[in-house]
Design a protein around this nucleic acid. Sequence first.
DNA 1: GACTCCCGCCAAAGC
DNA 2: GCTTTGGCGGGAGTC
Length: 917
Amino acid sequence: MDYVQCYCFQFSASQFPFFLVQENHSSEPYRSILKTPLKQSATSHSALTEIQPDCQPLTTPPKPKEIPPADPWTPTSNLKMLISAASPEIRSREQRRGLSDNTSEVLQAKHCLQEQLSGDEYEKSQPSRKEKSLGLLCHKFLARYPNYPSTAENNYICLDEVAEELNVERRRIYDIVNVLESLHMVSRLAKNRYAWHGRHNLTKTLQTLKKVGEENKYTQQIQMIKNREYEHEFDTDGERNEEMARSFGSNEHSEMCFVELPGMEFRAASVNSRKDKSLRVMSQKFVMLFLVSTPQIVSLEVAAKILIGEDQLEDLDKSKFKTKIRRLYDIANVLSSLELIKKVHVTEERGRKPAFKWTGPEVLPNVRDTKLEATATAWVPHISDSITSKEQCSKNLFPSRVKQSFTRHPSLIKLVKSIENDRRKIQSAPTSPVKISTSSDQNLSAVPSKMAQLAVISKHQLEGQSKKAKEMKLKLALACNQSSPEAVPKPEPRTAPPAQKSVLAQPLGVLPPSHSSVSPVMLPHTHSGVSYAIYLHPSQAHTVTTYSPSFMLQPLPCANVTGIKSINSKVLNKITTEEGDNHIAKDDPRNSLTANERQTVQPESMSHKCLKRSQALQENSLIKKCRSDDKSLATSLGESIKNERPPSNGLQMNHEMDNFQKERQNKAEKLDQNVASCCDQCKREGIPEDEDRTKTKQEIPMAFAIPAHETFFPSGYLIPLPQSTHHGNQAGFSNKEKAGICSLQHTTYSSPIAGVIPVTASELKAVNIPAFHITPLNIMVSPTSIAAAPVLSNSCLNSSNTSSAQTPSSSVLNFTLQHLGLIPAGVPVPASPVLQRMTVSSKSENVSHSSENMNLKEEKPSVPKEPQELQTVKENFFRTPGGPNTVSSFSANSDGTDGISQGTLYIPQRKLEVSED
DNA sequence: GACTCCCGCCAAAGC
DNA sequence: GCTTTGGCGGGAGTC
């Protein structure tokens, strides 16, 4: 036992000169042994952990060459020497150094040792399997390089050298490097030579992977697999596989390549040589699964099935499955070392399953497509590159996806591959002399610096705005407190962490449940500084709404925003980690970096999680809605929450809708009165009439101006309409604000059921908000939640102006219905509340819990099998121009136009979280 | 017995 | 033709 501890020190000392100082001053009798680098012990991890953050050698640390002094040999030291000599790694190392002329002696020593020690003792003397794990090796590898290397430093990696230093065969280093390469943390420069980029590219890569994963419909695939799991046991060669093959085939997954980032393309000539099975590609796909799923937990089984599905479904046999699992373990070990994932176990009906949970930074869905870009730049470096990156990745990953309606003929694939390979060879053959990474490293350094400048500027400006807004809020709070106490935002709202402020550049007021009966929630609109206010009834304190970077308002399943994850976990999965969920975060000092990163991105992550969930829920909702029959609308919401039943349609729904429309007219009037009252109050308090008043409208929660160009659309669909009234609405704004307003896309979204849903604060006390969804461009309220529609404010809209609540033309409606497959092509449908009967209900939104929460009771019978046609319809609908389910994606395309054109049907994210935990 | 994943063979790709 | 890269699966260690 004693010598084992000694080993720990030996490893550290030999690997890190940092420790050699101690060694040199040590009077420890076994000093001579300390000179021999041995394999790490279990404690080496912590040692590495402490070393890694700052003092990382950029290059291979010089190996200690000193010859061990001839210290007196004791029986113990002799034994230790024998043990160390017995190590094959040590032997091979000695051989490589040419210092080992006495191999036979060593072997003899080993033999001798074996004889001397009992079997158990000898086994104990060998490094345990854990100590040789890829994860630990990866830790050692990572410890050699800084997380954020400066380009001025030497960041090259020589595989041979590393393998030697780490006492492992090169094969293992390849495993690590391949995974790191998939995250663009390293890139291949030449034979045996890589460049270390650290985490500089990580955010960008993850964004890209997420985007690609979304486009690849991984969420749906996961869902599909999970659903099937519950329906049947996965059999190897049955009809189910064929079915699955068809599904995957229909998703055009047959051809997938390595996702590349701009400036890092084709750096590895072999990158795509075995692309379909490459560890790199597998690693990227694996990461994608985490990024697109909610919760971000992926079981190995599901991952393997998806990965196999993309390969050769016809060969979906056990051995293939086992192999995939093996590879996934390899990848997971590296990702774990990077602290991007953590091993967990999900408990479900069939038992405990190994899975991994994403613990890395949350990823913005797609910032570039929104006007947030400049702002987000302050937050995420390289963000401006992400577009190109995304496009590039899309091209790389889904070459045939550019025109989704066309599929490349298999016979052409080979030709294309051949051409691509040729081009690759020409462009990127990694040959000697070593290619200095001009495009990569320099871009990496140049772009970030520019972006950083932009970021600082944006941040500065936005902080200014934020301050103003805060001041206004306080003023307003005082002002409105008199007229409407419920609406007063708390001076210290439970806001998102500061990091988000800098990003959102708006006071994000996710307010705590106040003592008043209504909890206001301010939601900034980053485009224009418009905020939304949502008032929650205390009974819904668990459903706090926060801001989503994609401009979606998503109720979150808890009052404490920072507690979302835990609640989610609680609700969704009974997860047990092997070492405790919080262990790493709490205890591991190395985690500070990840923690920091996470701190920066967490606000987004939360809302985004909800976004993710909403996507999943929405999918289920759409499916179920189409199958729903005769359940009553009034009861369906509550029932569905509890029982996950499909929503209802029919006469009762129509009745409800009629009532609703009447109600909301009344509410509109009340709302106007409230607004006027509040503004008058502000006037009395000395708040400037002109600009500030307008601002007030933006920021005051009581300014329940219903966007004139935004209309509640009970059906959940938004149909873009020509904007005709918007400019008129801007008349009252200052130039400054006009500018902000103009930055908005003026697409009008309307509903067959035109109108607004004004709700006064007092009325809100009584309403529930089971499901809603708000974006700066649209507001969607599920039919079942319409009566509970929250109030909204949007400064760029005149509260009294509802004229733009237009009824879409019948042609648009026809288009909609036909696109839905609900009416045959060519059958005209008048613009009437027909859609009411086909609205997507939020009823079943929580159904996807069943898949996400394997621990929850699965209500398999209520999850009907999804027909292919419906699947297709669903896919089509969720394929928004900028990506699936991203509102932001159509708000501003790179060309400055609306990404959604006339006649385009957009099915919005519809909410979601019924957290009844 | 299931889960993990090390290990090294060997073929493809690179030089 | 040699070297590098990495897919792959046997099988051992661990739980």
